[in-house]
């Protein structure tokens, strides 16, 4: 299993039957590939769709049917469409059970930065600020450190925030961490990870109670 698969598989275990879930772009999108057999999870796409299906077969793609990443998708029996205002009303109203999204940085207080790097290409926050402010539970699913090995999980985010105190759980290829008033609690270790390795690649001290259980 590569890092992305470990993260997506572990994040999928947070799903529950009947959940309405919003998945962000990148690794979070892959979580849909690991929904446990027999479980019905409804994917919400903030551009106005409940019941997002898999990518279309070649030849059946429809320009009027895309997800929030502007990728062509399909509908499922029971799909519903609605306007952007309705979409964010259901998000803001707390009707979405779970939001799984990526991050540039997360910190021990559950602050999240994932939309802007000053001096870099200007993009915009899209729907991320609305999602993290209002989903009932927010999970960050991301690689533990940057490609050069710099920590992304920090004492305090240095990039502009997407949301303040919004993250509940962080899932990486190395660990599952829960945000608590006392700090980040190391709850699980990835398949090959050690406590020392996780702590070395994390920019704040983790609360560890040995032995830490394995993800899988």
């Amino acid at each position: 299993m590569d890092a992305r698969e470990i993260i997506a598989r572990r994040a999928a275990r947070e799903l529950r039957d009947g959940f309405y879930v919003n998945l962000g772009i990148g690794i979070p999108t892959a979580v849909a590939n690991y929904v446990p057999e027999g479980m019905e999870v409804i994917l919400q796409s903030e551009n106005g769709m409940l019941g997002v299906g898999p990518y279309p077969l070649a030849g059946s793609e429809d320009a009027d049917l895309v997800n929030a990443g502007k990728e062509t998708v399909t509908e499922l029996p029971g799909t519903a469409y609605f306007s952007s205002a309705d979409s964010f009303a259901m998000i803001r109203g707390g009707h979405v059970n779970l939001s799984i999204l990526g991050a540039l940085q997360v910190d021990r207080e559950g602050n999240l930065a994932n939309w802007m790097v000053p001096g870099k290409m200007l993009k915009g926050m899209g729907g991320a600020m609305d999602l993290v402010a209002s989903a009932r539970r927010v999970i960050v699913a991301m690689e533990h450190a940057t490609k050069s090995g710099a920590p992304k999980i920090l004492e305090a985010c240095t990039l502009p925030l997407t949301g303040s105190g919004v993250v509940d759980t962080i899932i990486t290829e190395l660990a599952v961490m829960r945000v608590t008033p006392q700090g980040l609690v190391l709850e699980e270790l990835g398949p090959e990870a050690t406590v020392e390795q996780v702590q070395r690649l994390t920019g704040c001290s983790l609360i560890v109670t040995e032995p830490v259980r394995r993800m899988f």
């Binding site: 903030e46 205002a85 979409s87 964010f88 998000i91 926050m125 729907g127 609305d130 999602l131």
Partner: peptide, 10 residues
Amino acid sequence: TLVPQGTLAE
């Protein structure tokens, strides 16, 4: 002016 998407819609 960049605005959160749900804020823009609302």
